[in-house]
Amino acid sequence: MATTNSVGNTAFDYSALNKKAETNTSAMAGQQETFLKLLVKQLQSQDPMNPMDNAQMTSQIAQINTVTGIEKLNVAMTNLLGAYGASQSIQAAALVGKQVMAPQSEFDFDPAKKLEAGITVPEDVSQMALVILDKDGKVVDQMSGTVKPGEFLPFEWDGTLADGTKAEAGKYYIVAKGLNSAGDEVKLAVNGWQQVKSVEFGKSGVQVNLASGEKVGFDTIQQVM
C-alpha cells in the first residue's frame, strides 16, 4: 500500500524548484556567451574583401534569440506547473474527513431516505440512459432522456418501483450510458457521496483514498459537502 502523508507532515521543497530554475538560467547565459564569442571570432577571421553578409549575421542573432526565448518559456512553465502542483496538493489535503461526490457504482439504499448520485456528462453527449440493478444484477428501475453536454447531472432515487412498491434495503448498482455526436455508445461516470480518509502525493499526481477503499484522482472529485 502506498504511504500517505498527513497535512502536518506535507512539505513542498520550493528551494529545489528555485535551484532548477537558476541552473536553467545559467545554462541559457552560457549558451549566449558562447554564441557571442563564436560570432566575434567569426567576424575577426572574415575576409575583409568578402565580409559576412548582414542578412546572414542577422539570421544567426535571430536564431540565438529564438532559442533563448524558448528556454525562458520552459523555465516559466516549469515554475508555473510546480506552483500549481503544490496548490492542488494543499487543496486535496483539506478534503480529509469530508464528504465528496466521487466515482462510485455500488450504493447502499435505505428506504427511509433517497439515494443521491450524480452523472458526469461528457461534452459531446446529449442523450443518456440509466439503469438501477439489484445485488443479483436484475434491473429494478430505468430512465432515459436528453441531457446538457458537459454538465454534472444530480440524480435522486426514492426506491419506488414500476408497480408502486418500495425497493428493499440493500446494495444496488447504477449504470449510465450515453450517445456521443458520432452516434457511438459511451459509458458515463456515476458518482456518489463518500468520505475521504486520506490523500496521497505521488509522481502520478494527487490521489484521494475513500472510506469505501477506492482510490480516485483528485480531478475526478465533482462536489464537496
Rank of each mutant, 00 (worst) to 15 (best):
M1P: 09
N5W: 11
S6V: 03
S6C: 09
V7L: 15
V7G: 10
G8D: 11
N9E: 13
T10Y: 14
T10R: 15
Y14I: 05
L17A: 15
L17G: 01
K20E: 13
T23C: 00
S26D: 13
A27P: 09
A27T: 08
M28A: 13
M28E: 12
A29S: 11
F35M: 09
L36T: 05
K37P: 08
L39G: 11
K41L: 15
Q42Y: 06
S45P: 02
Q46W: 01
Q56D: 12
Q56C: 04
M57P: 08
T58N: 12
Q60I: 12
A62S: 13
Q63R: 01
Q63V: 02
Q63T: 05
N65C: 00
N65A: 12
T66S: 09
T66G: 02
V67P: 06
G69D: 08
L73I: 06
L73F: 08
A76T: 03
A76R: 04
A76K: 05
L81K: 13
G82W: 03
G82C: 03
Y84W: 13
G85R: 10
A86I: 07
A86T: 00
Q88G: 03
S89Q: 11
A93M: 11
V96R: 02
Q99W: 06
V100Q: 06
P103N: 02
S105Q: 15
E106M: 12
F107T: 01
P111D: 02
P111T: 03
A112Y: 04
A112R: 12
L115Q: 04
L115N: 02
A117R: 05
T120Q: 13
E123I: 05
D124W: 02
A129P: 06
L130A: 00
I132N: 08
D134S: 10
V139F: 07
V139Y: 07
V140M: 00
D141A: 14
T146S: 12
V147Q: 04
F155N: 09
W157R: 10
D158L: 01
D158W: 06
D158Q: 03
D158E: 02
T160W: 00
L161K: 03
G164H: 06
T165Q: 12
T165P: 03
E168A: 15
A169D: 05
A169F: 09
A169C: 07
G170V: 02
G170Q: 06
Y173H: 14
V175T: 06
K177C: 03
N180S: 03
N180R: 02
G183P: 00
D184F: 09
V186T: 03
V190T: 01
Q194N: 11
Q195G: 14
V196W: 00
V196K: 07
K197W: 05
K197T: 02
S198G: 05
E200A: 15
E200Q: 14
F201E: 14
F201Q: 14
F201S: 14
F201W: 13
G202Q: 07
K203T: 14
V206K: 03
V206F: 01
L210F: 11
L210R: 05
S212A: 01
E214Y: 10
E214Q: 14
E214N: 13
K215Y: 05
D219A: 10
I221T: 00
Q222F: 04
